[in-house]
Amino acid sequence: MTYLHHAAAANDVEAIHALLAKGADLEARDGEGRTALLVATHENRVEAAAALIEAGADVNARDHIHDSPYLYAGARGLLTILKLTLSHGADLKSTNRYGGTALIPAAERGHVEAVEMLIAAGVRLDHVNRLGWTALLEAIILSDGGPRHVEIVKRLLAAGADPRLADAEGVTPLTHARQRGYEAMVKLLQAAGG
């Protein structure tokens, strides 16, 4: 881990600027393949992340497990950092180790605002990951059926997610919602033609 990584983890913007002025490598990697920006993102160090991004850090630089600052911020609902990555060249087509876009784990984890931000940015709604699931399917299958996930299903459908796109076994979102007793989701899916 470099001094820049430590400064990023500590949210020490002064040190970041000083290290960069002395020629620190913005894209240097630690033992896990993380850049200083990804370290800042993991710790949700907003000021450090902003300083690194403004200095030109790559928001799409991946670590050993294929996380990038953009993908991680989306998956974890780190809204300020996500917004910064989106305005600084985030690759909306990039995928995580499961072959999913940032939208899929954001939907699964119930991050309503992140889902909305990613939809607005233009992330493909019906992208299918290696598990055979879309963001809509994950919002149903891996959720508790609560209000945040119902809202995500509502927003995905309103944005044009295909309510009939089945999983790898041919099970539709509506069938998954019915099997789990998620009545609010069932109504939304039926209204959308699922």
Results as ranks from 00 to 15, higher is better:
Ala75Val: 06
Ala73Arg: 00
Gly31Lys: 10
Ala55Pro: 08
Thr80Met: 11
Leu37Asp: 01
Leu78Trp: 09
Gly89Cys: 10
Gly77Met: 11
Thr35Lys: 03
Arg76Asn: 11
Thr35Pro: 05
Leu78Glu: 14
Lys93Leu: 07
Ala57Cys: 10
Thr80Ala: 15
Thr85Glu: 00
Ala51Ile: 13
Pro105Arg: 07
His111Arg: 09
Asp63Pro: 01
Leu38Ser: 01
Glu113Cys: 05
Gly100Glu: 05
Arg45Ile: 05
Arg124Ser: 11
His66Val: 10
His66Ser: 12
Tyr72Ser: 00
Arg109Gln: 15
Gly99Ser: 07
Leu37Gln: 01
Glu43Phe: 14
Ala49Gln: 09
Thr80Ser: 15
Ala120His: 02
Ala102His: 07
Leu78Cys: 10
Leu92Tyr: 11
Ser87Arg: 14
Ala61Asn: 04
Asn96Trp: 04
Ala121Val: 02
Arg109Glu: 14
Ser87Tyr: 10
Ala114Ile: 07
Leu86Gln: 04
Ile119Cys: 00
Ala51Cys: 11
Ile65Met: 04
Thr35Ser: 14
Leu79Ile: 14
Thr80Asp: 15
Lys83Met: 02
Ala48Asn: 09
Glu113Tyr: 09
Val59Ala: 05
Glu108His: 14
Thr41Cys: 03
Tyr70Lys: 00
Ala51Asp: 09
Pro105Leu: 06
Glu113Asp: 12
Arg109Met: 13
Pro105Lys: 07
His64Arg: 07
Ile65Glu: 07
Val59Ile: 09
Ile104Gly: 01
Asp67Arg: 08
Val46Cys: 05
Val115Asn: 00
Asp63Gly: 04
Gly33Cys: 11
Gly31Ala: 11
Thr95Trp: 07
Ala51Ser: 13
Leu37Gly: 01
Asn96Thr: 13
Leu86Pro: 04
Arg34Ser: 13
Ser87Gly: 11
Val112His: 05
Arg109Asp: 11
Thr80Arg: 15
